[in-house]
């Protein structure tokens, strides 16, 4: 299978701090992989590294996507290659409406400007026709049970935690990626919203799409059934299993994992407090 993400012995540091210490993981086409692990174990760091965040330095290892190494690719190029990251803490872009942002990112991914057209004499580039885009947007917003008024607000500006997560899913639906990395998309959602967002994700998933779903809670996995569950600890995947592993984790916690794999207490989660939730 070529349509898959292969991470081999990945070592990542930020500044002088080593975060990933030889992580290996593969996600095939149409597969859902859940990634769990204590706060500060490096889940978001992995997601950022996969998407090409410039601060996360790859010291060793390889990541290939559809048979090609992606580590030298800029984030926007990875997006155009079909990768998508739903952020744990999405950024606000004040002054840019959801609708115009979505239209821009749709065009960037699906209607990239022909490089020959960049010159002075180029015909004015407009991308997807407005009416067609509006229909697409309405359809995707309905899929995620989103209020239409949402599209005129500024991107994540003053959004509640749950609204931000919904907007991440709307972006995913618009971009229609082949690899989706969802970083705690379930956290911050109320019970009804969790179900709606999960329904939306399921409706967005295609048989071609691979999913890496980062979560702290087994509950999400009732809606989106994983093919495999992995535990990240001490900078590595220390345990992998089927869906039942998420139940074991829920029941026994990460100390149980440490006992099982012989990692001393506290290693891999030295920063145990959760990352601050931005206002």
């Amino acid at each position: 299978m070529t349509d898959q993400l292969i991470i081999r012995d990945l070592e990542v540091s930020i500044g002088t701090k080593k975060i990933l210490r030889g992580l290996s993981l593969s996600v095939g086409q149409g597969e859902v992989h859940a990634l769990m692990g204590p706060n500060g174990s490096g889940k978001t760091s992995l997601a950022y590294t996969l998407m090409g965040h410039p601060d996360y330095h790859v010291d060793a290892g390889e990541v290939t996507w559809r048979g090609e190494s992606i580590l030298k690719m800029a984030p926007d190029k990875r997006a155009r290659a079909g990768m998508f990251l739903a952020f744990q803490y999405p950024s606000a872009i004040p002054g840019v409406t959801v609708a115009s942002f979505l239209r821009n990112i749709y065009n960037a991914v699906h209607h990239p400007r022909n490089p020959d057209e960049a010159g002075e004499g180029a015909i004015k580039y407009t991308g997807i026709p407005l009416a067609k885009f509006r229909r697409l947007l309405e359809e995707k917003m309905a899929l995620l049970s989103m209020d239409p008024g949402f599209s005129t607000r500024y991107v994540n500006d003053g959004f509640s935690g749950g609204e931000k997560k919904r907007l991440e899913m709307l972006q995913m639906a618009i971009m229609n990626p082949t690899l989706a990395i969802l970083d705690e998309t379930d956290s911050g959602l109320d019970i009804d919203a969790l179900r709606q967002v999960a329904d939306g994700i399921n409706a967005t998933l295609t048989p071609e799409m691979g999913v890496l779903l980062i979560t702290h809670y087994q509950r999400m996995l009732n809606y989106i059934r994983p093919d495999q569950v992995h535990v990240l600890l001490d900078g590595r995947i220390v345990m992998s299993g089927g869906e039942e592993l998420s139940h074991q984790l829920e029941a026994n916690g990460y100390d149980w994992v440490r006992e099982q794999v012989g990692v001393p207490d506290g290693v891999g989660d030295e920063v145990a407090e959760p990352a601050p939730q931005p206002a």
Binding site: Y48, G52, A74, P75, A79, F87, S91, N104, I105, M175
Partner: peptide
């Protein structure tokens, strides 16, 4: 990074 991760 957020905007770039969307293909811009």
């Amino acid at each position: 990074f957020y905007a770039q991760s969307r293909g811009l």
